[in-house]
Design a binder for these strands. Sequence first.
DNA 1: CCTGGCAA
DNA 2: TTGCCAGGG
Length: 350
Amino acid sequence: MSILGVNIRELIPPEAIKEIELESLKGRTIAIDAYNALYQFLAAIRQPDGTPLIDNKGRVTSHLSGIFYRTINLIEAGIKPIYVFDGLPPSLKEKELEKRRKVKEEAAKKYQVAIAEEKYEEARKYAQISTRLNDEMVKEAIKLLDAMGLPTVQAPAEGEAQAAYMAKKGDVWSSGSQDYDSILFGSPRVVRNLTVSGKRKLPKKDVYIDIKPEVIESNVIYEKLGINREKLIIIGIMLGTDYNPDGIKGVGIKTALKIVKSYEKTEEILKSLPQTQVDYYEIFNYFMNPEVTDNYTIQWKEPSVEKIKEILVEEHDFNEARVENAIERLQKSFKENVKSQTKGLDFWFK
DNA sequence: CCTGGCAA
DNA sequence: TTGCCAGGG
């Protein structure tokens, strides 16, 4: 989860956020931050005591369950998801990643304690915090998506940056993530809460609320706030990003907005920031020009029943009848929503 | 997170 | 038909 999200959400004018129905995204291609999605499945798909789904060899399978059923739901709704996977994180992110490692290690300890004390709600909470995505999980997810016939994209660095690049180019309609980073990376829009069943548990209480998909339009943010992307990036830097987790002391959204609006040139704003160990100019440049690639193809294939069953049923002990049922839904919606649009010159469709 | 069985 | 919720792996 990005710290950027926490603060910048308050800044986004309500006019820039549109609550929608999933069906209104019919025909849209969306570049989804795969890490963001997998991480959420891994954190959420757990028993009340925090135990994730596992196969008979003890390997975690929560992420596979999540991405399998979610993706089929999206395709059924006529949405064409393209999962974008992270490459190597930029060195700028090291401090934040170290911070996250520590938080997760602490949570893992607290999880053990909570389990020993039979405090299961607490255990679940710490299990979620300590969630980690490893290379094996990523590999398996890519293998599954490939078997399902979906294109995947390997980003050279940040998935959010790559997704933003693809949206900016027009290869996809939008980026998809729970975070707002792709906006700073230049995406024209980001879709959040990309899901069918709209119930979500609130952090503390046993209360469930309806969550609807929402589209955030970048240009509306800029119009309403009277700023441009450069200035939004600098606001992000002042509030704290993955590349400078601490932000700038004493600066909140109101002050940040006031500061950027009081200058004409971005250069001047950057110069006005307090001199610290952090190279704000470097961070700014990274958001403006992150490492991205054109080395990807957006092309769908017929879903492979055998491969899907091999991965889920044979390898990971998913229930065969359930998987078969889901595959049928996939094949049917693939024909209706994907294949029908790939004829002739539109083979490389968007 | 998501599905599917069951009660109302 | 809808809503709930236990259980998925």
